[in-house]
Amino acid sequence: MRHGINQRKLNRTSKHRLAMLHNMSMSLIDQERIITTLPKAKELRPYVERIITVAKTQDNLQGRRILYSKTKDTVLVKKLFTVLSKRYENRNGGYCRIMKYGFRKGDNAPLAVIELVDRDVITEKKG
């Protein structure tokens, strides 16, 4: 029976799975939109939303240290505290959106687009 199991293993070891979530969360925070498989996107959403919530609620040295330990990148920590925490200050969760994107050509895996809500599309087209 599967009682009490609340995460997908994604056919990876625990270290590989955590490293993958870490790398995907950094890419999502940096680019604000990535394309991945649907199960990976569903596992990534709570991971990223916890990071953004820490940036919103703990705007102090302790919060910066927590986020630096999660992201290992000072540029992303600065973006979390300056851009994303201001963007989501009136939103109580739900910072990510998952949309189905079809199926991958090689193995027919379901794809999904995961993106941050209320992202600035105009500046992305210029850059």
Rank of each mutant, 00 (worst) to 15 (best):
M1K: 10
H3A: 10
I5S: 11
N6S: 10
N6A: 08
Q7R: 15
R8C: 09
R8Y: 13
L10P: 01
N11C: 12
R17W: 11
R17D: 06
L18D: 08
A19M: 15
L21S: 04
L21N: 01
N23L: 15
M24A: 07
S27H: 06
L28G: 01
L28T: 03
E32A: 03
E32Q: 14
R33D: 03
I34Q: 04
I34D: 00
I35P: 01
T37A: 07
L38M: 10
P39T: 08
K40G: 03
P46A: 08
V48R: 03
E49A: 05
E49H: 07
E49R: 09
R50M: 13
I51V: 15
I51E: 01
I51S: 00
T53F: 05
T53K: 07
A55L: 07
K56E: 00
Q62L: 15
Q62S: 12
R65P: 04
R65C: 09
R65Y: 13
I66E: 09
S69H: 14
T71S: 08
V75C: 04
K78Q: 10
K78D: 09
L80V: 09
F81D: 02
T82Y: 09
T82R: 09
V83Y: 02
S85H: 08
S85C: 12
K86E: 10
K86P: 01
R87T: 11
Y88A: 00
E89V: 13
E89N: 12
N90F: 11
N90E: 12
N90G: 08
N92F: 06
N92M: 10
C96L: 10
C96W: 02
C96P: 01
R97M: 13
I98M: 04
K100E: 12
Y101P: 00
F103T: 13
K105P: 03
G106D: 03
D107H: 14
N108D: 06
N108R: 12
L111A: 04
L111G: 04
A112D: 02
A112M: 06
E115H: 05
E115D: 11
L116Y: 02
L116Q: 01
L116A: 04
V117K: 11
R119G: 02
D120H: 04
V121C: 03
I122W: 07
T123V: 08
T123N: 10
E124A: 13
K125H: 10
K125N: 05
K126E: 14
K126V: 08
G127W: 04
G127K: 14
